[in-house]
Each structure stands twice: as C-alpha cells, then as structure tokens.
Design a protein around this nucleic acid. Structure first.
Ligand code: SF4
Ligand code: SF4
Lengths: 146, 146
DNA sequence: TTCAAATAACACCTAAAGGTATTATTAATG
DNA sequence: CATTAATAATACCTTTAGGTGTTATTTGAA
C-alpha cells in the first residue's frame, strides 16, 4: 500500500505544522525539514490553503498556519484535501459494473481490506500522530533550493 | 486501495483462464470476455508468458495455457508477474530512511494495514477465487477490435 | 515610498503508466 | 510449399502525476 507522492507530502506537511498550531510556517522552513521539491511544495501549499485545513497569510512575514481544528481532522481528510481518494469502492478486478452474475470469492475479502484502510485513515487524527520538537525530522538528504 | 490497471488485467486473465486449466485460450477469446484493450492485452500476455504462470503456444491453433500449478499460486504472485509490488515496505510518509528519531505513532498502525493487504493477497490462491462457466463474465461494454 | 520577503497565478517540462501500430515469426493444414 | 491464424518483437503515441520556471501580488518595515 503506497500512497501517492502528493498525499505523502501533504501528510508530512500537516504532521510537521501540527507541532505548533500557533506558528506561521514559511514554505522555506517546510522545505528545509520535509524534503519535498521546493516549487512543488509551493504549489501544494496553495492547494491545501484552499481546502480549510490550513490558512495562508500573504506579504512579508507571511506563511501558513494550520487551521484551528485541524488537529482533530483525520488523515483521510488530509489526503482528500489533495483531491485524491486512496480507498475507493471499486471492484477487485477493476470492472466498472460487477462482471459476475454472483459475487466472486474475493469480493468480501477485498471489502474487508478496504474497510481496514478506511478505518485507520479515517479514525486516526492528526493529533494522535503529530511529531514534536524532540522527535523532529532528520534531514536525510541534502536539500538544495531550485 | 486500487491496484494498477495492469495488475487488475492480469488478475482478470488468470481468473478467467483458471476456469479450464487444460484449455488453450487465444488472445481474442480473452479480449471478448475481459474487456481489456486488445493490443495492450497482447503485450501483457507476452509478459505473463515469460513469468512461469502461463505458457504460450505459437503458430496456428496456438494460444496460452495456464501453468500446471498456477491454481495454487497466490494473487500476490500474479501481481508480481506484472512487475509490480502493491504492498511495499515503505514509510507512511514516504521517507526513504526513517525520518524520526523514534517511531512515530502511525508507524505500527500502518504496518498492520500493509500486513493485512499482504495476508489477503499472499494467502488467497487462484483456486479459491476462480470463476466457473456458470459465473462467467457479463460483457458490460461493447468490445471493438482496434 | 521604496524595498524586501513572503504567497498567488500561470504556463511549461519530464517520466511513467497505459495504450496503439506495424512488422516478424511460428506452425498447422490444404 | 503457400496460406492462414496464431504469438513475438519493436517502436511509437497519449494521458497523467510529478516537478520547474517566470512573473504578479501582497504587506511589513526601513
Ligand atoms: S463480485 Fe467480484 S467481479 Fe463483482 S464487484 Fe466484487 S470483486 Fe468485482
Ligand atoms: S516511524 Fe514514522 S517516519 Fe519513521 S518509517 Fe515509520 S512511519 Fe515513517
């Protein structure tokens, strides 16, 4: 189970910003800590700021601040803010309409798998997983502004 | 949880061919029943035939036959035959190396999700899910040879 | 009132998955 | 031995996710 890069990035961002919900974070600070391509990060921040989970402040000394109640939102909602749906409600074989006359033997099993994913993502809140200063990220890679 | 199109196609193919493990199936027959783009299907069949889960017979009256023990292989192995790995063993946030000093709160939960997917895909055999003549596919869409 | 430091907007580029097209090869059969 | 019906091989096209580049706008402060 791999989430899309974009979803992973959004989760990194929110997880990091949740450390201090008062603070205004600049894209540069996020870039230096989260190892996300700089310009892609900017684009993503703009997208996320349009979706109620964080707000932007323009101008000098501007930045982004996590929305008040973002700590109580689920990981699934964060992913949804990127415009994706990692769970879906699709056929195991990818058929548009069920192709079998009767349900095939994998149908229920697969439904349980999807339910499991859905549960974890929709019941886990940002507050539960957020990092802290002491568990801050290790910069694995050299980050260079492009 | 959506598998890739290619993985879904491979599963459709194997599931269908498992109905009669003796039979030699032509690409045309598969195309007419599985709603997979014709030329993409051909390419995929060649790929699958190189991976021990099915064998090809060339020439007139040729086709593909499911490998003897394919009924006992897992769904995961079928997906692997397409060159993909739907489970992975990656960080929830997509970090290459773990970015936290200590494991974050989502790590274990996400490991369980991946384990669940892995269990279902690796423990379910083709024999368990295979269709039969009576539960054959309904052709939802008009299929046109291109 | 100008400068600097931030976000916003828009357009473009790249890589990978998915899908097509064409030609070559194989082998049964009249 | 030519025909035909199948797979094999190779190359190319299309769409989309991911990533870059450039210019405009906002706003605090020298
Ligand atoms: S019964 Fe089988 S074919 Fe039908 S929707 Fe479920 S998984 Fe797909
Ligand atoms: S502990 Fe957290 S950051 Fe580290 S590998 Fe696990 S999910 Fe990723």
């Amino acid at each position: 189970m791999k989430l899309s890069k974009t979803a992973e990035y959004a989760l990194r961002i929110m997880n990091y910003m949740a450390i201090d919900e008062q603070k205004l974070y600049t894209t540069t600070e996020l870039f230096e800590n989260l190892n996300i391509p700089f310009r892609y990060l900017r684009k993503l921040m703009i997208k996320l700021s349009k979706s109620e989970i964080l707000t932007s402040v323009q101008g000098k000394h501007g930045g982004y601040r996590i929305a008040r109640k973002s700590l109580e939102i689920s990981l699934l909602e964060i992913i949804h803010a990127t415009g994706e749906d990692p769970v879906g409600n699709v056929c195991f074989f990818g058929f548009e309409k069920c192709a079998f006359v009767e349900k095939c033997a994998i149908h229920e099993k697969w439904t349980l798998v999807r339910d499991n994913i859905n549960q974890v993502l929709s019941k886990t809140t940002l507050a539960e997983i957020k990092g802290s200063e002491s568990t801050s990220f290790i910069k694995n890679n050299i980050s260079i502004l492009t």
